[in-house]
C-alpha cells in the first residue's frame, strides 16, 4: 500500500488543517498519538532526530512536553496543556514553541470509517493580541497564496 498524502489546507484566516488517513482502527491511531512510548517512535519529523523526552499527562488541565535532539546535539522543545480529552475521538491542546511563535490551539480529530482512520489536526493561531492576529491572518492566507505565487514565479524563471 502506498502512503497516504498529508494535506495542508486553509480553513479560515486563523486556522489551517493538516489531515492524513491511516490504515488502522481508531483506537490504535489514538493510542499512537497519546502514549509516550509510541509517540516517541514516530513524531520525529525529518531524518536524524530522536525524542529523548516525551511526557504526556492526558487529561483536561494536564500538560505535555516534548524534546527533540538532532544528531549533532541540537535540541528543540515544545510544550502545551490539554484542554479537552475525549477518548478516542478528540483532543484539544495548546502548543508552545518558545518566544518566536505565538501559542497555537490544536484540535485533533480521529474519525474511523471502514477500518481507516482519518486524523485531522486543526491549528488555530491566536487572535487575542492584535499583533498575533495580524500575523496569523497573514500567515494563513499568505501561505495558501504564496504557494500559487511561487508556482508562477518558478514557471516564469524556468
Amino acid at each position: 500500500m502506498t502512503a497516504s498524502t498529508t494535506t495542508l489546507s486553509t480553513l479560515s484566516d486563523e486556522e489551517i488543517s493538516i489531515s492524513r488517513e491511516f490504515d488502522a482502527p481508531r483506537h490504535l491511531v489514538f493510542d499512537a498519538h497519546t502514549k509516550p512510548e509510541l509517540v516517541s517512535q514516530w513524531l520525529l519529523g525529518p531524518e536524524h532526530w530522536t525524542m529523548p523526552v516525551c511526557e504526556i499527562d492526558l487529561r483536561p488541565g494536564g500538560s505535555w512536553h516534548y524534546v527533540w535532539r538532532y544528531q549533532d546535539g541540537t535540541e528543540m522543545e515544545m510544550r502545551g496543556d490539554f484542554r479537552e480529552v475525549e477518548v478516542p475521538t478528540r483532543i484539544v491542546h495548546t502548543e508552545r514553541w518558545g518566544d518566536e511563535w505565538p501559542e497555537t490551539l490544536h484540535t485533533v480529530l480521529f474519525a474511523e470509517q471502514d477500518g481507516t482512520t482519518t486524523v485531522t489536526r486543526i491549528v488555530r493561531f491566536p487572535s487575542a493580541q492584535a499583533r498575533d492576529a495580524a500575523l496569523a491572518t497573514g500567515m494563513m492566507s499568505g501561505v495558501e497564496r504564496s504557494f500559487d505565487l511561487l508556482d508562477d514565479l518558478l514557471a516564469a524563471v524556468a
Binding site: 497516504s4 498529508t6 490504515d23 514516530w42 525529518p46
Partner: peptide
C-alpha cells in the same frame, strides 16, 4: 514563507510515514 509552510507539512508527512509502520506493528 513557502519554505516555512513546506517544512511544517514535511515535518508531519515524514512523521506520519513512520506512524504507518508503528500502526502496522500495533495491528
Amino acid at each position: 514563507v513557502v519554505e516555512w509552510a513546506q517544512r511544517y507539512r514535511q515535518f508531519w508527512d515524514a512523521s506520519y510515514q513512520r506512524l504507518d509502520k508503528v500502526l502496522d506493528h500495533l495491528k
